[in-house]
Each structure stands twice: as structure tokens, then as C-alpha cells.
């Protein structure tokens, strides 16, 4: 049983890792690369806690094979802040108390960023449908939706 060698870009840094053919990207991120910000809530693509973007496209990293990361650009929660400067979404999640336990937060932030990158002025309904693949059991989503709205407004300069 030999491992596969994968060269990829993660949060702007080029990275190499070895993986089993059946390893998921989530396995590689968490157990090989030490990037535990993406969480495993279900391993079936139903909860969104493992959300990352691949070339800007939102994916559940539990549904993608690690080997498929070859040559791709992966962005995770660990790369969202610009060094010591939080992304407006991170800032508004904090200020708006949009998290309680926080386990779903990385996935929500990655998914919300993917939305705002494409649609800087989403309606409440658009936000709710875009985030429907991310489960939160603590907040009832109210403060999450408001935080995304507030971050979008700030990013638009509104």
C-alpha cells in the first residue's frame, strides 16, 4: 500500500502531503496538515462544518478526496484573517454574537465568504438559502444571518 504525493496550495502557501487513495481532503487537512479548523460533523456532506473553497468554489471537504487537491487552490478558515486583521465576516460574527458553541462557525464563515465574493448584496432569503447546507444547532440562525448582512454592508462600504 503506497501513499499518494499531493502538491497543492493552501491559504496561499504551497504545501505537499502524502495520503491514502481513499483519504478525504478533510482527513488530510485535519490529521496530516494539522489544520483542524474544518470540523467533521457528519462526513456525509449534510452539515457543512468542513466547508472549504477549492479555486473559490465552496465544497464539503469530507466529500472530496485528498488526492483531488493536486494542483488546486484550497482556502480554509485558517486563511480567512489577513494576519492580525480579521475579515469583516469574522468581526461581525464576534460583535453580533453569531456563535455559541462555535463548532459550526468555521464552516459558516467559509460559506458566507463564498457567497459575498460572488454576491456582495444578497437578500435575507439569498443568505438563508446559500447557508442552508450549514447546520447550526445553537443559534437558530438569527444572529448568523444578521452578522452576514452587517459584514456585507461593511464590505460594500454601505
Amino acid at each position: 500500500m503506497s501513499k499518494l504525493h499531493v502538491t497543492t496550495t493552501i491559504n496561499g502557501d504551497s504545501r505537499e502531503f502524502l495520503c491514502e487513495p481513499e483519504d478525504t481532503l478533510l482527513d488530510a487537512l485535519r490529521n496530516t496538515l494539522g489544520l483542524t479548523g474544518a470540523k467533521e460533523g457528519c462526513a456525509t456532506g449534510d452539515c457543512g462544518a468542513c466547508s472549504v473553497t477549492v479555486n473559490g468554489r465552496l465544497v464539503c471537504s469530507c466529500l472530496m478526496l485528498a488526492a483531488e487537491a493536486e494542483g488546486q487552490e484550497i482556502d480554509t478558515i485558517e486563511g480567512m484573517a489577513d494576519h492580525d486583521k480579521l475579515h469583516p465576516l469574522q468581526k461581525h460574527f464576534l460583535e453580533g454574537a453569531a456563535l455559541q458553541c462555535g463548532i459550526c462557525t468555521p464552516g459558516f464563515l467559509v460559506a458566507a465568504k463564498a457567497l459575498l465574493d460572488k454576491n456582495p448584496d444578497p437578500t435575507e432569503t439569498e443568505i438563508r438559502y446559500h447557508l442552508a447546507g450549514n447546520l447550526c444547532r445553537c443559534t437558530g440562525y438569527d444572529k448568523i444571518i444578521r452578522a452576514v448582512q452587517n459584514a456585507a454592508a461593511e464590505m460594500r462600504g454601505a
Binding site: 490529521n31 489544520l35 474544518a38 470540523k39 485558517e78 480567512m80 480579521l86 460574527f93 464576534l94 454574537a97
Partner: peptide
């Protein structure tokens, strides 16, 4: 007051360590 929670930054940056995060 509505202060920012002290564990907040860890939780929005992916640094917070949960049950399955320790190696």
C-alpha cells in the same frame, strides 16, 4: 453590556480546540 466574548477570536479563526482536534 454586549461585550465581545473572550473565546471569540479563537472560534472565528479555527484555532479553538474541540474534542477531536487534539493530536
Amino acid at each position: 453590556q454586549r461585550v465581545v466574548r473572550p473565546d471569540g477570536i479563537d472560534k472565528v479563526t479555527g484555532k479553538a480546540q474541540y474534542g477531536a482536534d487534539l493530536i
